[in-house]
Design a protein around this nucleic acid. Sequence first.
DNA 1: CATCGATTGTCACCCGATTGTGACCAGCAG
DNA 2: CTGCTGGTCACAATCGGGTGACAATCGATG
Lengths: 217, 217
Amino acid sequence: MRVLVVEDHQRLATAIAGGLRHEGMAVDLVFDGADALTRTTINDYDVVVLDRDLPGVHGDQVCRTLADRRSPARVLMLTAADTIRDRVNGLELGADDYLGKPFDFSELVARVRALARRASAPLPPAYARGDLTLDPARRIVSRGDRRVDLSPKEFAVLEHLLAADGRAVSAEELLERVWDEAANPFTTTVKTTIARLRARLGDPPLIETVREGGYRI
Amino acid sequence: MRVLVVEDHQRLATAIAGGLRHEGMAVDLVFDGADALTRTTINDYDVVVLDRDLPGVHGDQVCRTLADRRSPARVLMLTAADTIRDRVNGLELGADDYLGKPFDFSELVARVRALARRASAPLPPAYARGDLTLDPARRIVSRGDRRVDLSPKEFAVLEHLLAADGRAVSAEELLERVWDEAANPFTTTVKTTIARLRARLGDPPLIETVREGGYRI
DNA sequence: CATCGATTGTCACCCGATTGTGACCAGCAG
DNA sequence: CTGCTGGTCACAATCGGGTGACAATCGATG
């Protein structure tokens, strides 16, 4: 879990960062708002622990900017005074949670955890063709309920054929899309890879040859 | 709904337990703090109804221990005197609600119900995959009923793999999400960590390698 | 503050799978 | 029969991942 701590007081900053690291989180630390903004463009954080009173760019400003950018990072705002009014302000700025100083460290940890528990992105759908399925995210190919394991090239070729959805795909197109520039078009690489792929997929055959036109599934 | 009643006065204890059972709850009953602590390690309760004045281990102590353990059980504290001061103390100790004696039984029921509802939402942040379970909050990993202890990095990697839900996770992604900025992408750190993780998890192997694609669980 | 063990990053080396390659074979159309 | 397209095979080079050793660092403990 990736966390950015933004806090200008050295002592407190390192204490927070150290504590969160101790909980097993990957923590980056910056001491002002400007740095916070650049860091959040470079890295993807799950949570930003943001002190409100920062020199230079104010915490509120950082928070607002993140919200404007539609940053996926959740913001936990730290503030000296914890009044209802502050809380409302903070949440209106786009903070996801609010914690007043002084705070109990275990509470900070709990809240960071809670914020990081974001709904995991749904897995993209798998391809299916007859009894063949290919799941791009999991990198799994099955024939019926039998798992088929493929080498990276074989997998990529099969994925491309499935994506073509029945259209015939020429050897040139495969070379273009599946291989990189280093591929030598004057050799039999594609033929060979298709052969190996067919062998691994077993019977009945799935990949048809279209004379002069390439391959189709 | 699973409830533990901790109350040293026999009469009152059985009355409460009986009443809650009558409301359809599964109630366990103990008469002192020490028993309460052992029971809560054995079973997962939704709510603990806890008398404050207990012989031996005091109610406050029980409450604090539960909080320290990050127990998911919510605590409803019962107390003879219901002063503001008591209430604040109780809540600071980690109790989730507070009820002064004498109380109206219907109010007790209502509060237990309310607490149970509250508990059910953020309760299950534990991953499971086959015989493997990982509890992020407690930082506990088990294989079947055998506890596995992992270093922080190993734990974080495993958590990430489990969160990916079978998706293949590349070494780059792991570096990005589990390590902080100081990580050097040109070395074999991830490989090594995976190797150590595999060794600790034992047989049968759980983490699969996806050539060119990273790791999958 | 010194010490000891655990943790972690780094490197050198090993190994098997993968892949590109070209020679050769098979089927088919003209 | 001939020429062409595509399939098959064996081989060698390469690559990606696994392993074990080592050192630096961290953290707990006396």
